[in-house]
């Protein structure tokens, strides 16, 4: 038995050639490099821009978080002082608490609403494309214009909501000056903006469920509720997880809504101060770049914990990642 052919050969593998010389390999490598060069050049703008505007600032913010710097003078190294300050900073923990409360207040109703809307849009109704556009529209609306509208609607003394409530015989709520009012208003802005976005994703998921499953269930005599909970929800699980993940990312980095609604200070009692808004506040209104960077990395740690939890949730059952839809990344932030 001499020179037995390899048991498993790739079908497209070239016939084994006589052992190539060193010069051959180098030439081939050079040729391949030349062939691939246009491809590398074609994709380089992203990596160059990312290196300059993404990677460098990220790495530099690690350095800055160990320094005290006002943005123009000397950068002085202070070791872990910024982080020591951070763990005992009530304002930071208040911001963490606010962020999570607003996240829960917005994400839970938003995803339920989105599912309901998607379910309705999935029915055979007229003008479905129109509805889809209508529900998605808030997602592309200018945030500043939206903040003005919400500010007027929820205004304590002159707002539409309070006028309606007093007309109905209820007490007016200080939406923009009480701790819970502020959080609910911000959550309402988030819900208004992202429900349609999530509904569209759910709709795509609903449409990918084969109809023969429903037919079979109907033949077996399943009720509508059973169909929904035994077929729709289990098959939608990866998609629901996807929206939970994007909502978590968006919720943790919540900034624009409170900033345009309440200004850099986060409103009365800092009830609308989120982590990212606090970071912005420290870095760009207090010019404390060292502390701002430390907050950024604290947020990174919190986000990492959530990423791990999400990852566990998804990979735990095995069927998750494979079916994750290739939806556009959430553009919130």
């Amino acid at each position: 038995m001499t020179a037995a052919p390899p048991a498993i050969a790739r079908p497209d593998a070239p016939a084994p050639a006589p052992a190539p010389g060193r010069r051959d390999t180098r030439a081939r490598r050079r040729r391949r490099r030349r062939e691939n060069l246009p491809l590398y050049i074609a994709i380089s703008p992203f990596y160059l821009l990312f290196a300059v505007f993404g990677l460098f600032p990220i790495l530099f913010s690690i350095v800055l978080s160990f320094t005290d710097w006002d943005g123009m003078g000397e950068i002085s190294f202070v070791g872990l002082a910024q982080y020591q300050f951070l763990v005992t900073d009530d304002r930071f923990w208040n911001a963490v608490g606010n962020t999570f409360i607003i996240w829960i207040l917005s994400t839970v109703p938003m995803l339920f609403l989105a599912m309901a809307i998607a379910f309705l849009l999935h029915q055979n109704i007229r003008f479905t494309p129109l509805y889809r556009v209508a529900f998605f529209l808030p997602n592309v609306t200018s945030m500043v214009a939206m903040a003005i509208v919400f500010g007027s609607v929820f205004s304590d003394t002159f707002g539409l909501v309070n006028s309606a409530m007093t007309a109905l015989g209820l007490d007016a709520v200080p939406w923009l000056s009480s701790p819970w009012g502020i959080k609910i208003t911000i959550a309402a802005m988030v819900i208004w903006r992202f429900t349609g976005y999530n509904a569209i994703i759910y709709l795509a998921g609903l449409q990918s469920i084969p109809t023969d499953l429903y037919d079979a269930a109907r033949v077996d005599g399943a009720s509508l509720l059973q169909v929904f909970f035994r077929i729709t929800i289990p098959l939608m699980r990866p998609i629901i997880l996807f929206t939970v993940i994007t909502s978590t990312i968006g919720g943790l980095s919540l900034f624009t809504e409170p900033q345009v609604l309440l200004g850099d200070g986060g409103g009365a009692g800092e009830a609308g101060m989120t982590i990212v808004l606090y970071q912005y506040n420290q870095a760009f209104t207090q010019f404390d770049f060292g502390y701002g960077s430390a907050i950024a990395w604290a947020l990174f740690l919190i986000a990492a914990v959530f990423a791990i939890i999400n990852w566990r949730l998804v990979s735990g059952r095995g069927d998750g990642p494979a079916r994750r839809p290739r939806a556009r990344k959430d553009s919130r932030r």
Binding site: V52, L64, A283
Partner: peptide, 12 residues
């Protein structure tokens, strides 16, 4: 990372 914006000049 927002905190890192505006730190570019050091590169320059």
């Amino acid at each position: 990372m927002l905190g890192a914006a505006g730190l570019m000049p050091l590169a320059a």
